[in-house]
Design a protein around this nucleic acid. Structure first.
Lengths: 153, 153
DNA sequence: CACATTTATGCAATATTATTGCAAGACTTG
DNA sequence: CAAGTCTTGCAATAATATTGCATAAATGTG
Protein backbone atom coordinates (compact mmCIF):
# COMPACT_ATOMS: atom_id res chain seq x y z
CA UNK A 1 0.00 0.00 0.00
CA UNK A 2 2.78 2.43 0.90
CA UNK A 3 5.89 2.63 -1.18
CA UNK A 4 9.28 3.95 -0.19
CA UNK A 5 8.48 7.52 -1.15
CA UNK A 6 5.24 7.50 0.81
CA UNK A 7 7.12 6.43 3.91
CA UNK A 8 9.72 9.10 3.28
CA UNK A 9 6.99 11.71 3.06
CA UNK A 10 5.35 10.45 6.24
CA UNK A 11 8.64 10.47 8.08
CA UNK A 12 9.38 14.01 7.02
CA UNK A 13 5.93 15.22 7.95
CA UNK A 14 5.96 13.46 11.31
CA UNK A 15 8.95 15.59 12.22
CA UNK A 16 8.14 18.80 10.38
CA UNK A 17 4.95 19.49 8.54
CA UNK A 18 5.70 23.20 8.47
CA UNK A 19 7.81 23.30 5.34
CA UNK A 20 6.36 24.05 1.95
CA UNK A 21 5.32 21.40 -0.48
CA UNK A 22 8.06 22.47 -2.87
CA UNK A 23 10.73 21.85 -0.22
CA UNK A 24 9.32 18.44 0.56
CA UNK A 25 9.08 17.54 -3.09
CA UNK A 26 12.74 18.41 -3.39
CA UNK A 27 13.71 16.27 -0.42
CA UNK A 28 11.90 13.20 -1.64
CA UNK A 29 12.87 13.76 -5.26
CA UNK A 30 9.49 14.43 -6.83
CA UNK A 31 7.91 17.37 -8.58
CA UNK A 32 5.77 19.58 -6.33
CA UNK A 33 2.52 18.55 -7.95
CA UNK A 34 3.21 14.84 -7.64
CA UNK A 35 4.41 15.22 -4.11
CA UNK A 36 1.31 17.13 -3.11
CA UNK A 37 -0.91 14.52 -4.70
CA UNK A 38 0.75 11.89 -2.57
CA UNK A 39 0.30 13.91 0.58
CA UNK A 40 -3.39 14.37 -0.19
CA UNK A 41 -3.75 10.69 -0.87
CA UNK A 42 -2.12 9.87 2.46
CA UNK A 43 -4.54 12.22 4.16
CA UNK A 44 -7.60 10.87 2.41
CA UNK A 45 -6.44 7.33 3.10
CA UNK A 46 -6.26 8.05 6.82
CA UNK A 47 -2.53 7.52 7.17
CA UNK A 48 -2.13 11.13 8.15
CA UNK A 49 -4.63 11.75 10.89
CA UNK A 50 -4.07 15.46 11.37
CA UNK A 51 -1.60 18.34 11.37
CA UNK A 52 -0.96 19.99 14.70
CA UNK A 53 1.28 22.47 16.46
CA UNK A 54 3.56 21.29 19.26
CA UNK A 55 4.03 23.89 21.97
CA UNK A 56 6.95 24.39 24.29
CA UNK A 57 5.57 22.98 27.58
CA UNK A 58 7.65 25.27 29.76
CA UNK A 59 6.50 28.38 27.89
CA UNK A 60 2.95 27.15 28.08
CA UNK A 61 3.32 27.06 31.85
CA UNK A 62 3.24 23.31 32.24
CA UNK A 63 6.82 22.24 32.60
CA UNK A 64 6.12 19.58 35.24
CA UNK A 65 5.36 16.05 34.15
CA UNK A 66 4.22 13.11 36.23
CA UNK A 67 3.26 9.51 35.57
CA UNK A 68 0.75 7.83 37.87
CA UNK A 69 -0.07 4.15 38.09
CA UNK A 70 -3.43 3.32 39.63
CA UNK A 71 -4.77 0.10 41.16
CA UNK A 72 -8.51 -0.05 41.58
CA UNK A 73 -10.40 -1.71 44.45
CA UNK A 74 -12.28 -4.06 42.20
CA UNK A 75 -11.14 -4.87 38.74
CA UNK A 76 -14.47 -4.83 36.89
CA UNK A 77 -14.93 -3.16 33.53
CA UNK A 78 -17.54 -0.81 34.91
CA UNK A 79 -15.39 0.43 37.75
CA UNK A 80 -12.50 0.97 35.41
CA UNK A 81 -14.56 2.90 32.90
CA UNK A 82 -15.93 5.14 35.61
CA UNK A 83 -12.47 5.98 36.86
CA UNK A 84 -11.08 6.61 33.39
CA UNK A 85 -13.90 9.02 32.65
CA UNK A 86 -13.19 10.91 35.83
CA UNK A 87 -9.49 11.01 35.01
CA UNK A 88 -9.99 12.19 31.44
CA UNK A 89 -12.14 15.03 32.68
CA UNK A 90 -9.12 16.50 34.49
CA UNK A 91 -7.29 19.19 32.58
CA UNK A 92 -3.86 17.99 33.62
CA UNK A 93 -4.40 14.43 32.36
CA UNK A 94 -2.99 14.31 28.84
CA UNK A 95 -2.76 10.55 28.49
CA UNK A 96 -4.88 7.86 30.13
CA UNK A 97 -4.54 4.13 29.50
CA UNK A 98 -6.18 0.96 30.73
CA UNK A 99 -3.38 -1.57 31.02
CA UNK A 100 -2.59 -5.16 31.87
CA UNK A 101 -0.55 -6.12 34.91
CA UNK A 102 -0.62 -5.32 38.60
CA UNK A 103 -1.78 -1.82 37.73
CA UNK A 104 -5.13 -1.05 36.12
CA UNK A 105 -4.64 2.46 34.81
CA UNK A 106 -1.69 4.64 33.87
CA UNK A 107 -1.99 8.42 33.63
CA UNK A 108 0.41 10.96 32.21
CA UNK A 109 0.06 14.41 33.72
CA UNK A 110 1.18 17.87 32.65
CA UNK A 111 1.22 20.11 35.68
CA UNK A 112 1.67 23.76 36.37
CA UNK A 113 3.13 23.08 39.82
CA UNK A 114 2.99 20.66 42.73
CA UNK A 115 -0.08 22.33 44.11
CA UNK A 116 -1.99 21.30 41.05
CA UNK A 117 -0.83 17.72 41.62
CA UNK A 118 -2.09 17.93 45.17
CA UNK A 119 -5.51 19.11 44.05
CA UNK A 120 -5.66 16.52 41.32
CA UNK A 121 -4.93 13.71 43.77
CA UNK A 122 -7.72 15.01 45.99
CA UNK A 123 -10.15 14.74 43.13
CA UNK A 124 -9.03 11.40 41.73
CA UNK A 125 -7.93 9.43 44.75
CA UNK A 126 -10.06 10.52 47.65
CA UNK A 127 -12.07 8.12 49.77
CA UNK A 128 -14.73 6.33 47.77
CA UNK A 129 -13.07 6.90 44.41
CA UNK A 130 -12.55 3.16 44.06
CA UNK A 131 -8.77 3.49 44.02
CA UNK A 132 -6.90 0.97 46.14
CA UNK A 133 -3.41 2.33 45.62
CA UNK A 134 -1.61 4.73 43.35
CA UNK A 135 2.04 5.54 42.69
CA UNK A 136 3.13 8.94 41.52
CA UNK A 137 6.38 9.25 39.59
CA UNK A 138 7.62 12.75 38.89
CA UNK A 139 9.55 13.03 35.66
CA UNK A 140 13.10 14.13 36.40
CA UNK A 141 14.41 14.01 32.88
CA UNK A 142 12.88 13.40 29.50
CA UNK A 143 15.36 11.39 27.51
CA UNK A 144 12.99 10.98 24.58
CA UNK A 145 9.52 12.19 23.74
CA UNK A 146 8.47 11.43 20.19
CA UNK A 147 5.11 11.82 18.58
CA UNK A 148 6.49 10.21 15.46
CA UNK A 149 5.64 6.58 14.87
CA UNK A 150 8.69 4.59 13.80
CA UNK A 151 8.46 3.85 10.07
CA UNK A 152 11.11 1.86 8.30
CA UNK A 153 12.15 3.83 5.25
CA UNK B 1 3.03 37.86 27.66
CA UNK B 2 0.16 35.93 26.05
CA UNK B 3 -3.27 37.47 25.83
CA UNK B 4 -6.57 35.73 25.43
CA UNK B 5 -6.41 35.67 21.63
CA UNK B 6 -2.90 34.21 21.64
CA UNK B 7 -4.10 31.37 23.83
CA UNK B 8 -7.07 30.85 21.58
CA UNK B 9 -4.78 30.61 18.57
CA UNK B 10 -2.47 28.18 20.37
CA UNK B 11 -5.40 26.02 21.41
CA UNK B 12 -6.73 25.88 17.89
CA UNK B 13 -3.35 25.07 16.43
CA UNK B 14 -2.60 22.40 19.03
CA UNK B 15 -5.64 20.54 17.78
CA UNK B 16 -5.55 21.41 14.10
CA UNK B 17 -2.81 23.33 12.40
CA UNK B 18 -4.04 22.21 9.00
CA UNK B 19 -6.65 24.86 8.42
CA UNK B 20 -5.91 28.03 6.51
CA UNK B 21 -4.96 31.25 8.16
CA UNK B 22 -8.18 32.86 6.95
CA UNK B 23 -10.27 30.22 8.72
CA UNK B 24 -8.32 30.65 11.93
CA UNK B 25 -8.60 34.41 11.72
CA UNK B 26 -12.33 33.99 11.44
CA UNK B 27 -12.50 31.69 14.45
CA UNK B 28 -10.56 34.00 16.71
CA UNK B 29 -12.18 37.14 15.34
CA UNK B 30 -9.24 38.85 13.70
CA UNK B 31 -8.36 39.81 10.16
CA UNK B 32 -6.17 37.28 8.34
CA UNK B 33 -3.13 39.52 8.29
CA UNK B 34 -3.28 40.26 12.00
CA UNK B 35 -3.89 36.65 12.83
CA UNK B 36 -0.94 35.52 10.79
CA UNK B 37 1.30 38.09 12.41
CA UNK B 38 0.37 36.65 15.79
CA UNK B 39 1.10 33.11 14.67
CA UNK B 40 4.50 34.16 13.40
CA UNK B 41 5.21 35.95 16.65
CA UNK B 42 4.28 32.84 18.62
CA UNK B 43 6.64 30.83 16.45
CA UNK B 44 9.52 33.27 16.74
CA UNK B 45 8.94 33.54 20.46
CA UNK B 46 9.29 29.78 20.85
CA UNK B 47 5.77 29.14 22.09
CA UNK B 48 5.08 27.08 19.00
CA UNK B 49 7.90 24.61 18.75
CA UNK B 50 6.99 22.98 15.47
CA UNK B 51 4.22 21.80 13.17
CA UNK B 52 3.94 18.06 12.66
CA UNK B 53 1.73 15.38 11.17
CA UNK B 54 0.10 12.82 13.44
CA UNK B 55 -0.22 9.41 11.81
CA UNK B 56 -2.76 6.71 12.49
CA UNK B 57 -0.68 4.19 14.52
CA UNK B 58 -2.63 1.18 13.28
CA UNK B 59 -2.20 2.18 9.65
CA UNK B 60 1.45 2.78 10.27
CA UNK B 61 1.72 -0.81 11.46
CA UNK B 62 2.31 -0.03 15.12
CA UNK B 63 -1.02 -0.46 16.80
CA UNK B 64 0.38 -2.08 19.95
CA UNK B 65 1.37 0.10 22.87
CA UNK B 66 3.14 -0.84 26.06
CA UNK B 67 4.41 0.97 29.13
CA UNK B 68 7.43 -0.40 30.96
CA UNK B 69 8.71 0.59 34.38
CA UNK B 70 12.34 -0.22 35.08
CA UNK B 71 14.28 -0.55 38.33
CA UNK B 72 18.03 -0.45 38.00
CA UNK B 73 20.53 -2.43 40.09
CA UNK B 74 22.28 0.60 41.39
CA UNK B 75 20.73 4.03 41.36
CA UNK B 76 23.68 6.13 40.28
CA UNK B 77 23.41 8.86 37.69
CA UNK B 78 25.92 7.18 35.45
CA UNK B 79 24.11 3.86 35.40
CA UNK B 80 20.85 5.56 34.67
CA UNK B 81 22.25 7.60 31.82
CA UNK B 82 23.74 4.53 30.24
CA UNK B 83 20.47 2.68 30.36
CA UNK B 84 18.47 5.61 28.98
CA UNK B 85 20.84 5.91 26.05
CA UNK B 86 20.43 2.25 25.26
CA UNK B 87 16.66 2.54 25.52
CA UNK B 88 16.44 5.64 23.32
CA UNK B 89 18.42 3.85 20.64
CA UNK B 90 15.57 1.36 20.24
CA UNK B 91 13.15 2.15 17.46
CA UNK B 92 10.08 1.12 19.41
CA UNK B 93 10.83 3.43 22.34
CA UNK B 94 8.90 6.63 21.69
CA UNK B 95 9.07 8.07 25.18
CA UNK B 96 11.71 7.58 27.86
CA UNK B 97 11.73 9.25 31.27
CA UNK B 98 13.89 9.24 34.35
CA UNK B 99 11.49 9.41 37.27
CA UNK B 100 11.28 9.58 41.06
CA UNK B 101 9.88 6.75 43.14
CA UNK B 102 10.44 3.03 43.39
CA UNK B 103 11.00 2.94 39.67
CA UNK B 104 13.95 4.62 37.95
CA UNK B 105 12.86 4.75 34.34
CA UNK B 106 9.56 4.64 32.48
CA UNK B 107 9.38 3.75 28.79
CA UNK B 108 6.50 4.07 26.36
CA UNK B 109 6.68 1.63 23.47
CA UNK B 110 5.01 1.48 20.07
CA UNK B 111 5.18 -2.06 18.80
CA UNK B 112 4.44 -3.88 15.61
CA UNK B 113 3.62 -7.11 17.46
CA UNK B 114 4.51 -9.13 20.55
CA UNK B 115 7.55 -10.56 18.87
CA UNK B 116 9.05 -7.12 18.68
CA UNK B 117 8.44 -6.73 22.41
CA UNK B 118 10.21 -10.01 23.02
CA UNK B 119 13.24 -8.91 21.03
CA UNK B 120 13.25 -5.51 22.69
CA UNK B 121 13.27 -7.09 26.16
CA UNK B 122 16.19 -9.25 25.11
CA UNK B 123 18.16 -6.17 24.18
CA UNK B 124 17.22 -3.97 27.12
CA UNK B 125 16.86 -6.36 30.02
CA UNK B 126 19.26 -9.20 29.48
CA UNK B 127 21.84 -10.26 32.05
CA UNK B 128 24.34 -7.49 32.74
CA UNK B 129 22.15 -4.68 31.51
CA UNK B 130 21.99 -3.26 35.02
CA UNK B 131 18.25 -3.79 35.29
CA UNK B 132 17.06 -5.27 38.56
CA UNK B 133 13.38 -5.59 37.69
CA UNK B 134 10.97 -4.37 35.08
CA UNK B 135 7.20 -4.42 34.71
CA UNK B 136 5.55 -4.46 31.33
CA UNK B 137 2.04 -3.12 31.00
CA UNK B 138 0.28 -3.66 27.70
CA UNK B 139 -2.16 -0.90 26.81
CA UNK B 140 -5.65 -2.36 26.54
CA UNK B 141 -7.49 0.86 25.88
CA UNK B 142 -6.44 4.42 25.25
CA UNK B 143 -8.95 6.63 26.99
CA UNK B 144 -7.04 9.79 26.18
CA UNK B 145 -3.91 10.63 24.26
CA UNK B 146 -3.36 14.34 23.82
CA UNK B 147 -0.37 16.14 22.48
CA UNK B 148 -2.04 19.40 23.35
CA UNK B 149 -0.86 21.15 26.47
CA UNK B 150 -3.78 22.40 28.54
CA UNK B 151 -4.06 26.17 28.17
CA UNK B 152 -6.71 28.12 30.01
CA UNK B 153 -8.48 30.29 27.48
C1' DC C 1 -5.23 64.12 32.76
C1' DA C 2 -2.83 65.36 28.36
C1' DC C 3 0.62 64.06 25.51
C1' DA C 4 4.12 61.20 23.30
C1' DT C 5 5.52 56.67 22.13
C1' DT C 6 4.83 52.22 21.18
C1' DT C 7 2.12 48.50 19.50
C1' DA C 8 -1.65 46.29 17.16
C1' DT C 9 -5.05 46.47 13.59
C1' DG C 10 -7.39 46.04 8.86
C1' DC C 11 -7.14 46.94 4.06
C1' DA C 12 -5.23 46.47 -0.27
C1' DA C 13 -1.41 45.22 -3.19
C1' DT C 14 2.04 41.71 -3.96
C1' DA C 15 4.49 37.47 -3.57
C1' DT C 16 4.24 32.53 -2.56
C1' DT C 17 2.27 28.43 -2.60
C1' DA C 18 -1.19 24.97 -3.63
C1' DT C 19 -4.11 22.89 -7.03
C1' DT C 20 -5.75 21.06 -11.48
C1' DG C 21 -5.98 19.90 -16.66
C1' DC C 22 -3.43 17.59 -19.66
C1' DA C 23 -0.27 14.80 -22.38
C1' DA C 24 3.41 11.53 -21.93
C1' DG C 25 5.51 7.73 -19.68
C1' DA C 26 5.49 3.56 -16.52
C1' DC C 27 3.38 -0.31 -14.92
C1' DT C 28 -0.16 -4.23 -14.73
C1' DT C 29 -2.90 -7.77 -16.46
C1' DG C 30 -4.93 -10.76 -19.52
C1' DC D 1 2.17 -7.60 -26.94
C1' DA D 2 -1.94 -4.59 -26.37
C1' DA D 3 -5.50 -2.37 -23.59
C1' DG D 4 -6.20 -0.49 -19.53
C1' DT D 5 -4.85 1.83 -15.18
C1' DC D 6 -2.00 4.60 -12.61
C1' DT D 7 1.79 8.01 -11.95
C1' DT D 8 4.45 11.65 -13.46
C1' DG D 9 5.94 16.56 -14.68
C1' DC D 10 4.79 20.78 -16.81
C1' DA D 11 2.26 24.81 -17.26
C1' DA D 12 -1.81 27.50 -16.24
C1' DT D 13 -4.87 28.82 -12.58
C1' DA D 14 -6.65 29.38 -8.04
C1' DA D 15 -5.92 29.98 -3.36
C1' DT D 16 -3.24 31.53 0.34
C1' DA D 17 0.36 33.96 2.79
C1' DT D 18 2.92 38.14 3.31
C1' DT D 19 4.01 43.11 3.52
C1' DG D 20 3.50 48.40 3.20
C1' DC D 21 0.85 51.67 4.97
C1' DA D 22 -2.46 54.57 7.34
C1' DT D 23 -5.33 54.38 11.39
C1' DA D 24 -6.66 53.07 15.96
C1' DA D 25 -5.74 51.30 20.43
C1' DA D 26 -2.88 50.69 24.30
C1' DT D 27 0.83 52.02 27.20
C1' DG D 28 3.99 54.88 29.44
C1' DT D 29 5.48 59.78 31.11
C1' DG D 30 5.43 64.17 32.91
Amino acid sequence: MLDKIDRKILNLMQRDAGRTNAQMADEVGLSPSTCLRRVRRLQRGGFIDRIIAILDPARAGRGLKAIVTVELDRHGAHEQRRFLELACAQTAVVQAYAVTGQTDVVLMLRLRDMEELDQLCERLFREGSGVARFFTMMVIRTAREETAIPLEV
